[in-house]
Design a protein around this nucleic acid. Structure first.
Lengths: 159, 159
DNA sequence: CCCAATAGTTTGATGTTCAAACTAATTGGG
DNA sequence: CCCAATTAGTTTGAACATCAAACTATTGGG
């Protein structure tokens, strides 16, 4: 009886441990895989950072430099440097906003849009594998767990 | 009937979308929070990278420089630089291995061990919040999802 | 019409990273 | 037992990412 309880407790601890490590490893593994995929594609000249900037610029949003920099919590100067590279390589275009000529609206070239869609498809495959064999209820549970985590981080960060 | 089906499908897509974004954001949020926690603690002089190196060195493992560098997929030269900093700040000690004097075994000072435990406690709180309100079955499901993802990444990486 | 505020770029300094050269120690074949 | 090859870790030099602060161009309120 007591042994059973202790065994269950030990199993719980072990699961939590696994989840802990997996949570931490997930991102590194995704990043590494993204990088590797890109190396073997026609987008060889892009690194993970640049890929994510292309993704943040998006297909239709016409975001500004400041918006994207804030999203990445990156200084505007740093983003300017990345944008220079991405423009030179033909993924991104800067469009001066005619209504306010201080503002630059960012857009993707057709090459940039292709990269965006390729990356997006990769992520959809990723989530499909993550949710493999799960029904609606299961999916809700996963979603709940991630929402818990976001809430915890948000709240802890606030104070 | 058909509307219902279409609505369920749309809800599924939306959930998958949420999960996709959350998965990607999780790591950044965790990193940012770790960094912030540390800034407000007595370990102010440590950044996230260094924290993770301290964690990798661990309490009792006596790992070598090469082992840790491989773990982080980081060149040995880069790790050497970090170790110099961590040693100077009093978190890490290098111990020449007497059986093979080429080898350095890495260890933590008492300050390093304290940092390790603080960080470990933080991660346990994180996982607890992630699993808030869940029973054994739920936990198994989460674990399964993470295992799916790891397997997907492993396999995709192999070929 | 002026000037404070804003968007983005440039600049200079700092820190991270890597690959290659290097040093010291070990090992194995002759 | 020696020396050539290998291995562990460090040093070095170059490339790149990053930031904060100075700067330029533009806007909009008084």
């Amino acid at each position: 009886m007591i042994d059973e309880k202790a065994a269950a407790e030990a199993a719980r601890k072990q699961d939590e441990n696994y989840i802990n490590n997996a949570l931490v490893d997930v991102y590194d593994n995704i990043m590494r895989f993204e990088e590797q995929q890109i190396r073997g594609s026609r987008f060889r000249d892009i690194n993970a950072r640049e890929l994510h900037i292309v993704h943040a610029i998006g297909l239709h949003d016409h975001k500004t430099t400041t918006q994207v920099a804030d999203e990445f919590r990156m200084s505007k100067g740093t983003l300017t440097a990345h944008l220079n590279n991405l423009e030179r390589k033909g993924y991104v275009i800067r469009q001066r906003n005619p209504a306010d000529r201080r503002v630059i609206n960012l857009g993707l070239t057709s090459k940039g849009r292709l990269l965006y869609r390729t990356h997006d498809a990769f992520h959809r495959r990723l989530v499909k594998s993550f949710l493999h064999g799960m029904d609606d209820d299961d999916r809700q549970l996963i979603k709940q767990a991630l929402m818990n985590l976001e809430q915890f981080l948000d709240e802890a960060q606030k104070k």
